[in-house]
Simulated scan of single mutants.
Amino acid sequence: MIGYVTLGVSDMGRAKQFYTDLLADLGAKVLMDMERIAFIGKSMGAPMLAVCTPFNGEPNHPGNGNMVAIPAGSKEAVDKLYHKAIELGATCDGEPGQRIPDMFYGAYVRDPDGNKLAFFEFG
């Protein structure tokens, strides 16, 4: 299973603010902050999202085909997370909607560094 996913960022302060504001309603907060990497989640024993500046000192680059999918809990919560992300500076990469009839509802954004996120609800 997944312990944490790491996203490379160019500005740690901006990234921590974006993700803590975005995920606060899901109960997430910064759990550990070690200057160049910060872990955000509900608890150290649950899956987390980490933001970091690349260890090698080179510029961060979003991966082509990489995406972090965050379960929202309901279709309404998908919509709420999508709109909150846009308000916080994300860009649209797919508006909220039913993707697979009666099976998958989702929305897609790119964070301020270009990392792709999905918010989803099955059913």
Rank of each mutant, 00 (worst) to 15 (best):
K84F: 05
R99Q: 10
I86L: 06
E121T: 07
D111P: 06
P62N: 13
V109P: 00
K84Q: 12
Y105H: 03
D93C: 05
C52T: 14
F122G: 10
A50Y: 12
E35G: 02
T20W: 04
N66M: 14
D25G: 06
A85M: 03
L49W: 13
A50T: 08
L31D: 03
V68D: 03
R36E: 14
P112C: 04
E35D: 15
I100Y: 08
L22I: 05
A72Q: 05
L23G: 07
A77G: 02
L7M: 09
H61V: 14
N60I: 11
K84L: 07
L49S: 11
A38D: 07
F39L: 10
F18I: 05
M44G: 15
G57N: 06
M1C: 10
T20P: 02
G63R: 14
R99Y: 09
Y105R: 03
C52F: 11
S43I: 09
F119T: 03
V9Y: 08
S10C: 04
N64I: 15
L88T: 04
G65Y: 07
M32R: 12
G3I: 08
M103R: 08
G13R: 14
L31N: 07
F39T: 10
C52G: 14
V51H: 12
H83P: 02
Y108V: 00
Y108W: 08
I40T: 07
G106L: 01
P59Q: 10
G97I: 02
G97T: 00
M44Q: 14
R99D: 01
M67P: 00
S10L: 02
A50R: 12
I37T: 15
E87R: 07
R99P: 04
V30D: 05
I40E: 05
A69D: 02
K29C: 04
I70E: 06
A24D: 09
G8H: 11
A72S: 05
N60E: 15
G73V: 07
A90G: 01
H83K: 06
M34R: 13
F55P: 10
P71I: 10
L26I: 08
K42Q: 15
V51K: 12
I86Q: 00
R14C: 01
A118M: 09
F39M: 12
M103L: 05
D111W: 02
L88I: 01
H61R: 15
D33A: 07
G123Y: 03
K80H: 14
I40D: 00
L7I: 10
L7T: 03
L49G: 11
Q98N: 02
L81F: 07
D33N: 09
E87T: 04
V51I: 15
R36H: 15
E76F: 09
M34P: 00
T6M: 13
P101A: 05
M103H: 09
K42A: 14
E121C: 11
Y82H: 08
G57D: 08
S74N: 08
K42D: 07
D21S: 10
F120E: 02
Y108I: 01
A24L: 08
L31M: 06
G63N: 12
L117E: 04
H61W: 12
P112S: 06
D21M: 06
Y4V: 04
